Simulated assay, not measured.
Amino acid sequence: MNTSTRMTGVLSPVVTPFKADLSPDAAKLVSICKWLLSQDVGLAVFGTNSEANSLSVGEKIELMNALADAGIPGQRMMPGTGCCSITDTVELTRHAMKIGAGGVLMLPPFYYKGVSDDGLFASYSEVIQRVGDSRLRIYVYHIPPVSNVPITLPLIERLLKAYPGTIAGVKDSSGDWSNTSAMLERFQPQGFDVFAGSESFLLATLRAGGAGCITAMGNANPGPIAKLAREWQNSDADAQQEKINLVRQTYSKFPMIPALKAAIAHFSGDAGWATVRPPLVKLTEEQSSGLVQALDGIGFTMPGLK
């Protein structure tokens, strides 16, 4: 397997800023991506917390172009390209390769439920063959609480055998450490990179040989999470993990995507950041005040955001 473009550490499913008319705000996206990179966090744009499934293929392509035109390094990007339609997935994945993305995070087609591993293998296989790019590195996205279409261990094994230079890793957002551990034990020795779907599992993942995490909280708490990823072998790593967990616990009292955006709006001084696309609803003034008060109570800040 070609490991020259191996992605490790912490990546953020970057929140997507919207203008008042609900169109994507490319300038703001560039700005926050540059801030995240300054915090040593990579960019999993168009992930779950990016409101990716509220964006069209055309909008995603325009935003990828804006990031590339702004000089954002492609190798630090892992765009989400998995859609229900094979042709949409192929179009987005090809464009990710065009801008030099280090990999793509690919949901399975998630509308039909109860599909077989045979069907999912055929879907991933079709995409790989249609894209036809030797640079392609796919990180399969296992998020059964949302998709209800799991990426099973036998499916990963089959994909790895068929496409060992292309199937690069997984984001495991099952929230089940036993599943993540099984992936690590079974596939990590083959050079298959396992990313936890939450920084709560970051230390455990790294200690077991995993690649890192791709996490919503990378948007809000990137510096400390990236610091743990760098210093996980230090004696204070458990204490660092506990502090990171406290921040997540504070945000988790509120709807996650609106809470992330409300915090960015507060700490950046730009109220427009609070805007979400329907069907999501932004936090109420009472909720926003409660979030800020709770964050102040634990000494939380977002240094360098403004």
Rank of each mutant, 00 (worst) to 15 (best):
G82E: 10
A101Y: 13
M106K: 06
P108Y: 00
P108L: 09
R94V: 05
M106E: 12
Y112H: 13
V104T: 08
V104Y: 03
V104N: 05
A101Q: 02
S85K: 08
K98Q: 12
V104K: 07
V90T: 15
H95I: 06
G102M: 10
V104Q: 05
T93I: 09
I86C: 14
V90Y: 07
S85A: 15
G80H: 01
C84W: 02
I86F: 08
K98E: 10
A101T: 07
G82A: 11
P109C: 03
C83P: 09
S85I: 15
P79F: 13
P79W: 13
C83M: 13
C84Y: 14
E91F: 02
L105D: 01
R76V: 12
M78W: 08
F110K: 02
T89W: 01
I86H: 11
V90K: 09
M78H: 06
G102D: 03
M77F: 05
P109T: 01
T89R: 01
L105K: 00
Y112A: 08
V104F: 02
C84R: 01
M97Y: 09
L107C: 13
R76G: 00
A96E: 07
I99G: 03
M97E: 09
L107W: 12
P108N: 05
F110A: 15
M106T: 06
T81E: 04
G102R: 07
I99N: 03
M78S: 10
H95Q: 09
A96T: 02
M106L: 11
C83S: 09
R94S: 14
E91N: 11
G80R: 00
L107G: 00
K98C: 00
V104S: 02
H95P: 02
I99H: 08
T87W: 10
C83W: 10
M78Q: 14
C83H: 06
G103V: 01
P109V: 00
M77W: 05
R94I: 13
I99E: 09
A96R: 01
T89F: 02
I86D: 08
I86Y: 12
M78D: 12
M97P: 03
S85M: 15
H95Y: 11
G80I: 01
V90D: 10
M106Y: 13
T93L: 06
R76H: 08
T81D: 04
T81Q: 08
L107A: 03
M97H: 13
Y111Q: 10
E91M: 10
K98Y: 05
V90H: 12
P108E: 07
C83G: 00
M77H: 04
T81C: 15
P109F: 03
M78F: 05
L107P: 00
P79V: 07
C84A: 12
S85V: 14
E91I: 08
T89L: 02
D88L: 04
V90W: 04
T87C: 06
K98G: 01
